Amino acid sequence: MQATALTHAERRIRQRNAAILMALVILIVLVFILSMNTGFTRLSPFDLLRTLFGGGTSKERLILFDFRLPRIVISVLIGAGLAVSGCVMQGISRNALADPGILGINAGAGLVVLLFIAFFPTTAAAPVFLLPVLAWAGAGLTAALIFSLSYKRHQGLSPTRLLLSGVAVAAGISSVTIVLMLRISPDKYQFAATWMAGSIWGTNWKFVLALLPFIVVLLPFVICKARTMNVLHLGEATATGLGARVPREQLTLLAAAVGLAGSCVAVSGGIGFVGLIAPHIARRLVGPSHQTLLPASALTGALLVIAADTLGRWILQPAEVPTGIVVAVIGAPYFLYLLSRTKGG
């Protein structure tokens, strides 16, 4: 009788979580449609449908297919990538404040991207496809440094040391980035400043193709590791007792999280807080189990970034507010709220 009641309760939870995931998908589709009609040149719903199905004028096709759709698709991809990266980092470190931006991962990726931009043109096809790889390398080196500073052989990975090491490394990288910006040409300085504010600058299909392999490969890989993450979240001693190879699994998941964050930063600029707040919102919606938390985080992050990008393009037309600034307006108060609720130690 009790087992039957438990089965019914689990079934209700699964149905509820499935409904929440479906609601997030519907919201993303609705914002996607709204975003296609947001910009200096407005397209009526009829013009939008006509252009999508092969009609429309050459100007309407240019606006929709060459300018807006690549940017919208990239917004969805980077939102999902950054959110899942943050969820993984929070899971393996057991630190509610872990995030690629706060821990300096984004800063490391961004520094390498800015170094590349300072010395090479970004319009050629080859550099576009190299950017995610270079960003991944910068993010990986930064993550390795932070992990080595936070990990103690007999104590494991300390959440407090991880946060403090990440903040210190991020501050150092930011200082180097500022010095670099002062030494580049004025036109590249303007681009770098806009990039650091979190402006989605990779707005053509080449950038979509450069980012897509990282998302398509790493997102399913991380979701397949959901059970392992549930075990790791119990603590290193318990996870080891249950047979998990804790250091190996932590490094594997950290590499996947770094790959997601680095590749996203390469085309999105310095968008922060997505990896922090999206997993927390998702956890409130579907609970702590990573089987549903990871997909919910991806959908929440995608919804957050596409909504922020749409709002940034609409609020001060014809000018644009960088997506990172819109996200920060939401994320900064939420970060302070989480910080106030986090116990020290």
Rank of each mutant, 00 (worst) to 15 (best):
R11I: 03
A226R: 11
V305P: 02
G56I: 01
H290R: 06
A261L: 08
I223E: 09
L162M: 12
M196R: 11
A302V: 05
T252G: 02
I78F: 01
A135V: 10
T160A: 12
I330H: 00
A193Q: 12
G259D: 09
V167F: 02
V286M: 01
P220Q: 08
L285G: 01
K225L: 09
G259V: 07
V329E: 06
G55F: 04
N106T: 14
I146K: 00
I184V: 15
A255M: 11
T122Q: 08
M89L: 14
S165F: 03
I223V: 13
Y151V: 10
L253Y: 12
K188T: 06
L157P: 02
S263Y: 05
I200G: 07
C87P: 05
K225H: 15
P100A: 08
A3Q: 10
G344F: 15
F273N: 13
L69K: 04
S93P: 05
L30A: 15
F65W: 14
Q15F: 14
Q2P: 13
R68C: 01
R68G: 04
A137V: 15
L49A: 14
Q90L: 03
Q155H: 12
Q155Y: 10
V274H: 04
A278E: 03
G202R: 15
L52I: 13
I26D: 06
A332C: 05
E249S: 13
V326D: 01
A319P: 12
T323V: 07
A319W: 15
L209T: 01
S185F: 12
L339I: 09
N106L: 08
A18G: 12
R16G: 04
P322T: 04
S165T: 02
P186I: 00
R94V: 04
L211V: 10
P318C: 02
P318F: 07
G156D: 03
A135Q: 12
V265D: 06
I92A: 07
L111M: 15
L253W: 12
T300K: 00
L131G: 07
L316F: 15
M229C: 10
Y189W: 10
L6A: 15
F191S: 14
H233L: 01
P318W: 06
D66G: 10
L218Y: 00
R248V: 14
T323D: 03
L299K: 07
